[in-house]
């Protein structure tokens, strides 16, 4: 099966990084191949590779050109890209609490109106999703999840907000996401989680890994407040269901 897959494109990102591109689109199969290459590269380190950054459709491989050149590294990456995923069976599964709507998710009502549904229906569909961390990027802990119900696919807001709260759970395009630190966003805000995907002075500092699976559990405002205080003190409020 692996041998029948088209090889990825090797795109130069300057003289010290290669973008290994599996697809130009948001594509679940391509994302699985990105994560498989990432794991294979971790299992069989290539001298000179300094860091890898998985995204939806490509793996960015940083390297030191003092130790290895573009051609030699590219050849090794093409070989590794054909190997089966070494860790596909060992997926971690997280259950993450979310307070939906109201002050926690100021766009829930508008999203419901736009999609001609009730807010409860939007929440029901969002909670029913079985998501995978496709990539983490932009700001620390910002986790982009694939697997959003087609019914909830919605263009981003016309004008992005300059500041959205820490812990925001939002939808944008075909994606849903967990935003860890306060920052700008053009997505629709459905709720907030007390879970910190990035927290200094906690072990681990970063909670989620690309490839983890995630489901959401609705909680009320009171539970959110309690869990938010516990999380601030460094406790885990996300539940690891299976590893």
């Amino acid at each position: 099966m692996a041998a029948s897959q088209a090889p990825p494109r090797l795109l130069p990102s300057g003289d010290s990084a290669i973008t290994v591109e599996f697809s130009r689109d948001i594509d679940d199969a391509a994302n699985r191949r990105v994560l498989a290459l990432d794991r294979n590269l971790a299992a069989v380190p290539v001298a000179g590779v300094t860091e890898t950054v998985p995204t939806y459709r490509s793996l960015l491989v940083h390297y030191d050109p003092v130790h290895i050149g573009f051609e030699a590294l590219g050849e090794q990456l093409l070989g590794l890209a054909q190997r089966p995923d070494p860790a596909a069976a060992r997926t971690r599964r997280w259950r993450i609490p979310v307070a939906y709507g109201g002050e926690h998710g100021i766009d829930l009502e508008d999203v419901a109106k736009t999609l001609n549904a009730t807010p409860d229906e939007i929440v029901r569909r969002h909670v029913a999703g079985d998501y995978r961390v496709a990539m983490i990027g932009f700001t620390p802990g910002w986790s982009y999840l694939s697997g959003l119900d087609k019914f909830l696919h919605l263009p981003r807001r016309q004008s992005p907000r300059v500041l959205t709260p820490a812990g925001t759970i939002s939808i944008g395009g075909v994606q849903t996401g967990i935003q860890c630190i306060a920052g700008p966003s053009g997505w629709h805000l459905l709720g907030r989680t007390p879970v910190r995907t990035y927290q200094l002075h906690r072990d681990p500092i970063f909670l989620l890994e690309p490839g983890d699976t995630v489901s959401f559990t609705p909680v009320d405002a009171k539970t959110f407040a309690e869990q938010d205080r516990a999380a601030e003190a460094g406790e885990f409020v996300a539940e690891l269901v299976a590893a």
Binding site: G14, A17, T19, T55, Y56, L60, Y144
Partner: peptide, 11 residues
């Protein structure tokens, strides 16, 4: 608009 991918210093 492209699907986000990784950046480096100097992109």
């Amino acid at each position: 608009n492209i699907v986000s991918d990784g950046t480096v210093n100097g992109s």
